Amino acid sequence: MYALIQDDDTKSQNLAKEMPEIELYRVNGSTNKIPLLLIKQIIKRRKKPKAVILRYLNDSTSFIKSIIRFITNLVTVFLSKLLGVRLIWICHNVDKESKEYFPYLVRLRRKIVTKFSDKILVTDKLLIKHAAKILKVNEAKIDFITFGNPSINQNHNTNDLGQEIIEFIQKNNNENTLFGLSIGNPNKKVLQPFYTIDLIEKAIKFGVDLKIILGGPLSDFIKKHDMDTYKKLIDNPNVLFLDGKVKVNESYISQFIDFYWRVYDDYSVPFTVYNAAYLKKPILTMGKGFLSEMVFEYELGSILENNMSNVVNAIKNLEKDRTRSYDQFTETHNWSIGAKQLYKIIISE
């Protein structure tokens, strides 16, 4: 048995490793290849796949390329229905795609895939009720999968960036200082860069010394949205601003930090949740989007009020021993469980 799955990335690779009963044929590169590869694999193997698994429905900056993606999505749906192959959509982003340049086309693609999918899978069981409401489908059509132990880079604990982080921490490591880590790619849903200065300043008013390590290719993104915030971030001595791709051994760095700092306004599961839980570090977030619900329900950290009026209590709460919560999370959120869930859906009739 085999199934086609969109994207040959860490997530699909780990799910495939944990699912030996069925081969996950990973479509590397452009999603536009899916219809051709579907036909090619059927001819080559002389049998149909059990399922075609779609994932991200991201847009392109080019209108022509967006039209092509729309058409290939249509063809994929049509072929799946014509051939009697199960169509499964892993809906990583419940309310919106990460990249939307032509929103009407993206909404139309999402509506078509929602309507014709045999099953929609969200990336946490807590998202099921939100997906039913947002996608306007019956909860019976929705199930969930999980991810698991992050593939944490083990080769960069002594590189320049790793050393810069450690030196920043050692230089500022006073008795009451707390260090937060926030490394990731820019995106409209990623809000913590725009709240970092406010967090630091509110904490200072109450005598709390916070240092934030903010890393990723963020400069152009922040400048485009708020030049004043960018200037404050690079000028603030409490912020280590690392612009560009940041590759460090997070497992090694985690021993020097106190918490992860993340704020999202969408309904998706950031991989930071897995990093934090597996490395046993709390998450500091705000009452926005789905991340705050995960942090609350699974007891993975602290939630700031949107006006940060509870900053002292939220930061103090980071010191709580959450070992049991981290263990429970990793026991119920791992690649094996995700693979079993996906396998169950693939072979369902």
Results as ranks from 00 to 15, higher is better:
residue 257 I to V: 15
residue 229 T to Q: 11
residue 208 V to F: 08
residue 244 G to D: 11
residue 155 N to L: 13
residue 263 V to G: 05
residue 176 N to Y: 11
residue 214 L to T: 02
residue 135 L to Q: 07
residue 222 I to R: 00
residue 260 Y to P: 09
residue 251 S to A: 14
residue 163 Q to C: 09
residue 196 T to D: 01
residue 241 F to Q: 04
residue 242 L to Y: 10
residue 206 F to R: 14
residue 196 T to F: 03
residue 173 N to W: 01
residue 137 V to A: 08
residue 261 W to I: 03
residue 257 I to H: 07
residue 203 A to L: 04
residue 200 I to F: 07
residue 156 H to W: 04
residue 253 I to P: 00
residue 197 I to H: 07
residue 200 I to D: 08
residue 196 T to K: 06
residue 236 N to M: 01
residue 213 I to F: 05
residue 155 N to S: 13
residue 146 T to P: 05
residue 169 I to R: 06
residue 205 K to A: 11
residue 137 V to C: 08
residue 197 I to A: 05
residue 181 L to H: 02
residue 259 F to Q: 07
residue 225 H to N: 15
residue 261 W to G: 06
residue 145 I to G: 05
residue 138 N to K: 10
residue 223 K to V: 04
residue 162 G to I: 00
residue 263 V to P: 03
residue 243 D to M: 08
residue 163 Q to G: 14
residue 156 H to R: 11
residue 200 I to C: 06
residue 231 K to W: 04
residue 232 K to C: 02
residue 154 Q to K: 15
residue 171 K to F: 09
residue 183 I to G: 08
residue 198 D to E: 14
residue 248 V to N: 01
residue 187 N to S: 15
residue 244 G to C: 03
residue 251 S to N: 15
residue 253 I to T: 03
residue 258 D to F: 09
residue 155 N to Q: 12
residue 178 L to R: 14
residue 212 I to C: 07
residue 161 L to C: 11
residue 239 V to Q: 10
residue 222 I to K: 01
residue 158 T to V: 10
residue 158 T to F: 12
residue 259 F to L: 08
residue 147 F to T: 06
residue 236 N to Y: 02
residue 156 H to D: 14
residue 227 M to D: 13
residue 163 Q to K: 15
residue 210 L to E: 08
residue 135 L to I: 01
residue 227 M to Y: 11
residue 247 K to I: 05
residue 234 I to W: 01
residue 184 G to E: 01
residue 161 L to H: 10
residue 198 D to K: 15
residue 202 K to N: 13
residue 217 P to Q: 11
residue 242 L to F: 10
residue 253 I to Y: 02
residue 258 D to S: 12
residue 164 E to F: 00
residue 197 I to Y: 04
residue 248 V to F: 02
residue 257 I to W: 06
residue 187 N to T: 13
residue 197 I to M: 05
residue 160 D to W: 06
residue 145 I to N: 02
residue 190 V to F: 15
residue 146 T to G: 10
residue 212 I to D: 04
residue 218 L to I: 01
residue 162 G to R: 10
residue 169 I to D: 07
residue 260 Y to D: 07
residue 170 Q to I: 00
residue 185 N to Y: 13
residue 179 F to C: 07
residue 198 D to L: 09
residue 173 N to C: 06
residue 167 E to I: 04
residue 180 G to M: 03
residue 141 K to P: 09
residue 200 I to Y: 09
residue 260 Y to F: 15
residue 208 V to S: 03
residue 149 N to Y: 11
residue 259 F to V: 02
residue 255 Q to I: 00
residue 246 V to D: 04
residue 218 L to H: 08
residue 191 L to D: 02
residue 142 I to W: 07
residue 153 N to K: 12
residue 147 F to A: 12
residue 152 I to V: 12
residue 157 N to Q: 15
residue 175 E to D: 12
residue 248 V to T: 01
residue 246 V to M: 06
residue 223 K to F: 09
residue 242 L to E: 09
residue 138 N to L: 00
residue 166 I to Y: 10
residue 215 G to P: 06
residue 143 D to G: 14
residue 259 F to W: 03
residue 187 N to P: 00
residue 192 Q to C: 11
residue 169 I to K: 06
residue 141 K to D: 01
residue 244 G to N: 13
residue 177 T to N: 11
residue 144 F to E: 02
